[in-house]
């Protein structure tokens, strides 16, 4: 089992970050995310919480040994569930791989919550684990490859979202700043 976590602040208010969430893709930093579909969405008429289930299709080259051993192709699918709670100002996003899921799970949680100075705290954790029904060495290699790819994608995701938020909001926030 491998753990991954990162924590930093986006220099935008929570509502801007949460609106920006739906505009992150397509993104030149994350060309591996090629399709996004909403499978389910509810707006709770009592609490105002929005729950969304999405399916992301990714295309990323896998090493030949992965393809040979696990029959994987370069197309991978991820299930993503998000909750946006305006009352508590919390947004959580959970992602789980669907592809290769009989061999390994990559379970990711993200949370956006307000931070001081009108910023937004981002916390990302992930657990990557090969299932037990494999030779140990193969499981280790698979886990290591998944971890490497996850860390790489996490860095790309940060650059991608930073750019999106900047282009969506920078002018507006500067204007608000100069008026206050």
């Amino acid at each position: 089992m491998h753990y991954f976590s990162q924590l930093f602040n986006y220099e935008h208010p929570w509502s801007h970050v949460v609106i920006g969430m739906w505009h992150k893709y397509p993104n030149p930093h994350c060309t591996h995310v090629v399709t996004i579909d909403t499978l389910d969405r509810t707006v709770d008429p009592r609490t105002g919480v929005i729950r969304t289930e999405r399916l992301m299709g990714c295309k990323q080259k896998a090493p030949i040994w992965i393809v040979k051993l696990f029959g994987g192709s370069e197309n991978a699918f991820v299930r993503e569930i998000s909750f946006i709670n305006p009352a508590t100002q919390e947004a959580t996003i959970t992602s789980v791989n669907l592809s290769l899921s009989q061999f390994a799970t990559c379970y990711e949680n993200i949370r956006y919550s307000p931070a001081p100075d009108g910023h937004t705290a981002f916390i990302q954790t992930a657990e990557i684990q090969a299932r037990m029904s494999m030779w140990r060495s193969t499981a280790d290699r698979l886990e290591n490859w998944l971890v490497q790819r996850f860390e790489h994608n996490a860095q790309l995701g940060k650059m991608a979202f930073t750019d999106v938020l900047r282009s969506m909001w920078e002018a507006k926030e500067q204007h608000a700043h100069s008026c206050s």
């Binding site: 919390e90 959970t94 899921s101 949680n109």
Partner: peptide
């Protein structure tokens, strides 16, 4: 399968920073 394993009808608990 993923839904059966983890329905996620409620938000996960993530330690806040």
């Amino acid at each position: 399968q993923a839904r059966a394993e983890n329905p996620l009808k409620e938000p996960p608990s993530i330690p806040s920073p």
